[in-house]
């Protein structure tokens, strides 16, 4: 598996289907994009933004649910300043952006926690989780926010591992670099997180036949 396939689903979605990126969606050549942005090409930077920002934002929601937008804005300032010195492809770029985002978010968490009387974000997450229990029966209609909030109810290492891998689109190795852990630890955390989510969602355990149909249909795409 090449690294490029990690982020595939969101690439297609973000740049192929969304109105904003529709015209450029078919030309997301990663290395070209980075190089063009480094030459000062605004459109390339815009595409990078559209490709990465939704992922970053959702990842940040698991860390700092109430300040994700603000932190993401800071992250893009830093990216804009540092992109000249960046080396790598779009996958690396996602990892770089996630690293910046994580640092910023953790800085914020440290500041917030230092102040007494301020809600600890983890508590907010569990509240979100409680709200999501009611949505268990209507999983088909799960909104993105609910899904992210559900993932955010996991222990943080698991939530981060799942988000970095599935949503940000990083390999276990790249996620490990972001989190400062070994790939094996990332895998373990992510698998545990998925299992816990499945448990929490009640695993309706649909008939295998239907699932395979879905699989085949999806694969044909």
């Amino acid at each position: 598996m090449t690294r490029g396939e990690y982020g595939q689903s969101l690439d297609l979605v973000v740049c192929g289907l969304s109105t904003a990126g529709a015209t450029h969606g078919d030309r997301l050549e990663s290395d070209d994009l980075i190089a063009a942005a480094q030459r000062g090409d605004e459109e390339a930077f815009r595409l990078l933004y559209r490709e990465v920002q939704p992922r970053l934002l959702r990842y940040l929601r698991t860390l700092v649910p109430c300040d994700a937008e603000d932190v993401a804005a800071d992250v893009w300032l830093e990216i804009a300043r540092g992109i000249q010195g960046f080396r790598g492809d779009v996958d690396d770029f996602r990892g770089w952006a996630a690293t910046i985002a994580r640092h910023r978010a953790l800085d914020l968490l440290r500041r917030v926690r230092r102040r007494p009387g301020v809600d600890i974000p983890v508590e907010e997450l569990t509240q979100l989780a409680a709200a999501d229990d009611t949505a268990g029966g209507a999983l088909d209609a799960l909104s993105t926010d609910t899904a992210v909030a559900l993932i955010a109810t996991l222990p943080r290492d698991q939530a981060e591992a799942v988000m970095l891998r599935v949503v940000v689109g990083l390999s276990a190795e790249a996620a490990g670099e972001v989190l400062g852990k070994r790939p094996g630890a990332i895998r373990t955390a992510a698998h545990r997180g998925l299992r816990r989510l499945a448990e929490r969602l009640g695993h309706p355990d649909r008939p295998a036949g239907r699932r395979r149909e879905t699989t085949v249909r999806l694969r044909k795409r």
Binding site: S18, Q53, L139, L142, T144, V166, L197
Partner: peptide
Amino acid sequence: LGHAGAPDVLVHLLTAATAPA
């Protein structure tokens, strides 16, 4: 997300989490 053997709930969840911008 189309892998055989993955619970639908998880597929739904992750599909929603990776939905279009």
